[in-house]
């Protein structure tokens, strides 16, 4: 196997990891600060993509500006979901919470489809990143993949230190660890919950914008039925990645996204039965992670109690 092929596959895997990581960060951030398992994550990102599609398709807004608007709309959708729906859920059953998240997801997916005026089949989407390929010592890399990786690494590199050091970041972590104590210390937990939703939703919008407008390479992307339904092929790996950190630890979630992106892509090189059943292996991995109850390794019992109530 020539090194350049391995390197090419690794880069594709890394780009996929980056997209999964951006979704997983949002899932973890929202779960930690509000206790909501956000099954609507994918659909909130989709609203941003649809905004981008409508802006580039009809009004001729420059793609980069449209992409920024798409992310902004995702942020707005997330804030709206938190303010209108999730902040009103009292301490209740876990099942009701998941059901409501599914309902919010279904709502945003339906709105996205409504905005596309119910077009079926495939919609061509203009790209906003350069479509060129770069030849790096015999390895052909597409620029959009490289940029995807850079954006993912960049957002993690900004977010993690920000959470650790900055005033808002520390307040956010305080809310995550103990909502009541944070409230007593003068932190407006509702405001910070909304902030977590906004950051997570913005990252979801960005992740999908990197995925869909470049799914077909330099020509742009294809928005198909597969993308218009909120669950499925990408939310599940994102949850798998987040589960590596028990939905609690961000660094572990980032490591998890490497498993569900890079490792899964590299398994193409493995011998026949493994390379054909890569998807099944991912599903088995998620089930094992669920059974391990990984959150035990990352949080104290008191923190877990606070999250569940």
């Amino acid at each position: 196997m020539p090194t350049s092929v391995v390197l090419q596959i690794a880069l594709i895997g890394l780009a996929k990891s980056g997209i999964i990581a951006m979704l997983a960060i949002g899932v973890v951030l929202i779960y930690r600060t509000t206790g909501v398992v956000n099954l609507a994550h994918w659909a909130i990102g989709l609203v941003g993509v649809v905004t981008y599609v409508l802006l580039t398709g009809e009004t001729g807004v420059p793609p980069l500006l449209a992409a920024a608007a798409g992310v902004a709309v995702s942020v707005l959708a997330g804030a709206l979901a938190q303010r209108v729906v999730f902040s009103r859920i009292g301490k209740g059953e876990a099942v009701t919470m998941i059901l409501i998240a599914l309902g919010v997801g279904a709502f945003f997916a339906a709105v996205a489809q409504m905005l596309l005026r119910g077009q079926r089949g495939e919609i061509l989407v203009a790209p906003f990143l350069p479509g060129e390929t770069i030849d790096l010592m015999g390895t052909v890399i597409s620029a959009s993949e490289l940029i995807t990786i850079l954006i993912a690494v960049g957002s993690a590199a900004v977010l993690l230190p920000w959470l650790k050091r900055s005033r808002s970041g520390r307040a956010l972590r305080a809310v995550a660890q103990n909502r009541e104590a944070a409230q007593l210390a003068g932190i407006d937990s509702a405001r910070y919950a909304e902030l977590a939703w906004m950051i997570g939703s913005g990252l979801a919008g960005l992740a999908l914008l990197l995925l869909i407008p470049h799914s077909a390479g330099a020509q742009g992307g294809v928005l198909s039925v597969v993308h218009l339904v909120p669950l499925g092929s990408l939310l599940l790996p994102a949850f798998g990645a987040a589960l590596v950190g028990g939905l609690i630890s961000l660094p572990a979630a980032l490591a998890g996204s490497l498993i569900f992106g890079l490792v899964q892509e590299l398994l193409i090189l493995a011998p026949a039965p493994i390379s054909d059943e890569r998807d099944i292996l991912a599903f088995v991995a998620i089930t094992v992670l669920l059974l391990l109850r990984t959150e035990r390794f990352f949080a104290s019992n008191a923190e877990l109690e606070a999250l569940r109530s």
């Binding site: 729906v85 279904a106 709105v111 409504m114």
Partner: peptide
Amino acid sequence: ALFLQYFIAAITAAAFIFVLL
């Protein structure tokens, strides 16, 4: 009427959230 179909889907999802709450 595809538009109405998705409108109904959105209304249904909103009704679902209302029912749960």
